[in-house]
Amino acid sequence: VTVDIKGMEYHFDNPEEAKKFAERMAKELGGELKVENGTLKVE
């Protein structure tokens, strides 16, 4: 699973970990979490 945090890509084997990480980063950065082509994106 790929997580894109404002252009920086992180790769996770575990989808649950990827989702938790993306949600935490969205909250910390005040960004919006989206799913695009199987990639979790925070913008």
Rank of each mutant, 00 (worst) to 15 (best):
A26G: 03
M8G: 04
E32C: 14
R24M: 13
G31S: 07
G30V: 04
F12E: 01
A26H: 04
A18R: 00
V42E: 04
N37H: 05
G38F: 00
Y10E: 02
M25Y: 05
F12H: 00
D13K: 07
K34W: 10
V1H: 09
H11V: 11
D13W: 06
K6C: 15
I5G: 01
A26M: 09
K20N: 12
G38Y: 00
P15Y: 15
Y10H: 09
N14E: 08
G30D: 09
G30S: 07
T39P: 05
F21Y: 04
G30M: 08
V3Y: 00
D13P: 07
E23Y: 00
K20Y: 06
L40D: 06
K19D: 06
I5A: 02
A18E: 03
N37T: 06
K27N: 09
K19A: 09
E36S: 10
A26P: 00
G7D: 04
L40S: 05
A26I: 09
E43K: 11
K6L: 15
Y10G: 02
D13L: 08
L33H: 04
L33N: 04
E36F: 05
K41G: 06
A18Y: 03
K6I: 11
I5N: 01
V3G: 01
L29P: 02
G30R: 08
V3W: 00
A26Q: 07
E16I: 09
E43S: 12
V42T: 05
G38V: 01
M25A: 06
G30P: 03
E16Q: 09
E23A: 02
E23M: 03
V3H: 00
I5S: 02
L33P: 04
F21T: 01
N14L: 06
G7C: 13
L33G: 04
I5K: 01
A26Y: 03
E28R: 10
P15A: 13
E23R: 00
A26F: 05
E43G: 11
D4G: 07
E36P: 03
E17F: 03
V3D: 00
E9T: 10
T2S: 07
E17T: 06
E9M: 13
D13T: 10
L29M: 10
R24N: 10
K20R: 13
L33S: 04
E9A: 08
V1L: 12
E43P: 06
E23D: 09
E36A: 10
M8K: 14
M25R: 02
F21S: 01
K34L: 11
L33Q: 04
G38M: 01
R24W: 09
V1Y: 14
L29A: 05
F21I: 02
A22R: 03
A26D: 01
E43N: 11
V35C: 15
K6A: 15
K19V: 11
E28Q: 11
E28Y: 11
D13S: 10
A26E: 02
G38E: 07
V1M: 12
E9I: 15
G30W: 04
H11M: 08
V1K: 07
A22Y: 06
L40M: 09
V35N: 10
D4I: 15
A26S: 07
F21N: 01
N14S: 13
N37D: 11
N37P: 04
K34S: 10
E32K: 14
V1W: 14
T2Q: 05
K19I: 14
K41Y: 12
H11F: 13
V1F: 13
V42G: 05
M8N: 11
G7M: 01
D4F: 14
A18V: 00
K6S: 14
V42I: 11
E9C: 15
T2K: 13
V1T: 12
N14G: 06
E17S: 07
N37E: 09
E43I: 15
Y10V: 07
K27Q: 11
L33Y: 04
N14D: 14
G7K: 02
G30Q: 08
V35A: 08
A22W: 08
V35G: 06
E32T: 14
E9H: 13
Y10A: 03
L29T: 07
E28D: 07
G31F: 11
G7V: 01
E32P: 03
T2I: 13
E28M: 13
Y10D: 02
N14K: 03
F21Q: 01
E28C: 15
P15V: 13
G30E: 07
E28A: 12
V42M: 02
L40C: 09
V1D: 02
M25H: 03
G31C: 14
R24S: 11
A18M: 01
G31T: 06
F21P: 01
K27H: 10
A18F: 02
T2Y: 08
A18P: 00
N14R: 03
Y10R: 05
G31K: 03
K6G: 15
G7T: 02
D13M: 07
T39D: 08
G38T: 03
V3T: 01
E43W: 10
R24H: 13
K20T: 07
E17P: 00
E32Y: 15
L40R: 04
T2W: 11
G38P: 05
K20F: 07
N14V: 05
V3R: 01
G38D: 09
V1N: 07
E17W: 02
G38C: 11
K34C: 12
M25E: 02
K41F: 12
P15S: 10
G38H: 04
V1R: 07
E43H: 12
I5M: 03
T39S: 11
T2P: 02
K34P: 04
K19H: 13
G30T: 05
K27W: 10
E28I: 14
D13G: 08
I5H: 04
E36R: 08
A22G: 07
V3N: 01
I5P: 01
G30K: 10
E32Q: 14
E43V: 15
F12V: 00
D4R: 14
E28L: 14
K6N: 15
Y10L: 06
K27T: 10
V3K: 01
D13I: 07
K19G: 05
N37W: 00
A26R: 06
K27G: 06
V42C: 08
G38R: 01
L29D: 03
K41C: 12
E23P: 00
F21K: 00
V42D: 05
K20P: 00
M8H: 13
